[in-house]
Simulated scan of single mutants.
Amino acid sequence: MIERPSARYGQQRLTRRQRRLLAGGLTVLVLVAGIVVAVVAFGRFDNPAEGELSGYRLLDDQTVEVTISVTRSDPAEPVVCIVRARAIDGSETGRREVLIGPSTQKTVQVTAAVRSRKPPVVGDVYGCGTDVPAYLVAP
């Protein structure tokens, strides 16, 4: 390759080999970044506790009784689940946090009454997690 003065001819382009190395390096960088994002996302979305609605019963115009099945990867660890009441329009009209203490079984069934601001038509489980607030832990 002939060296030409950059002041007169402008900056020289990359050689074919340099372009291939640059493209290969960028490809590897993008793949590594994708793997890192996937590993972090998997760690965040891997929920060690899962709640599933088993049933609900309307007690009166302000209360629904919600029964959930809670499955944990570690039954010795306490979890908290949020159960809620919903009105006819689908809006959440009541909510309650339920502490599920340590157990010997992976799956336990829990029933909780939820007070509602409007007449409830359904009860459901919003979700469960292992971040138990301090105010739910028994002294």
Rank of each mutant, 00 (worst) to 15 (best):
E77S: 11
Q11T: 11
L31E: 09
V121A: 05
R95Y: 13
D46L: 03
I100F: 08
R19C: 12
C128H: 10
F42N: 10
R117M: 04
K118R: 14
N47L: 09
S6T: 08
Y135V: 05
F42K: 09
G25C: 02
T93M: 06
P75S: 12
R96M: 06
V32N: 10
A85I: 03
V40M: 13
A134E: 07
S69G: 07
D89L: 07
T67C: 00
E97R: 15
V122F: 04
D74M: 10
V40S: 14
D124W: 13
T15S: 15
Q11S: 13
R72W: 12
F45N: 03
T15I: 09
S54K: 01
P102C: 05
Q105E: 14
D46P: 00
D89R: 06
S6F: 12
P48G: 05
E92N: 15
E97S: 12
E92S: 15
V36Y: 14
G101F: 07
V83K: 00
T15Q: 06
G43S: 08
Q109T: 15
P139N: 04
G10E: 14
V98C: 06
D124R: 15
T71S: 13
S54T: 04
E65G: 05
V137A: 03
V80Q: 01
F42V: 05
A85H: 07
R117I: 03
R19Y: 10
T107W: 04
P48Y: 00
D61C: 12
A41D: 09
V114D: 12
V28I: 15
R13Y: 03
P120L: 12
R86F: 05
E3Y: 05
R57G: 04
K118V: 11
G101L: 07
E65T: 01
A87L: 07
A76P: 07
E52H: 06
R117A: 08
Q109L: 10
V114Y: 13
A138V: 07
R20K: 05
V70D: 00
C81T: 10
P119C: 02
A41G: 00
R84L: 13
G123R: 07
P119V: 03
V137K: 05
V64Y: 08
V32E: 02
A87W: 06
S73N: 06
T93P: 10
R44F: 08
R8E: 11
R20P: 01
K106I: 09
I2G: 09
R20S: 07
P133Q: 04
R44E: 09
L29R: 02
R4W: 13
V114I: 11
E65D: 01
S54F: 01
T107G: 08
C128D: 00
L31W: 11
Q12S: 14
V98A: 13
S91W: 14
L14V: 15
A33G: 00
P120M: 04
I68M: 09
V28A: 14
V122C: 01
D124N: 15
G25T: 00
V39I: 06
T104D: 15
P120I: 10
P139G: 06
Y135W: 04
R13P: 05
C81Y: 04
G43F: 03
I88M: 14
L26N: 08
V121M: 12
P120T: 11
A23P: 02
D89H: 05
V79F: 00
A23V: 03
R8G: 04
L26V: 13
G55F: 08
R17L: 08
S73W: 12
P119Y: 02
A87T: 02
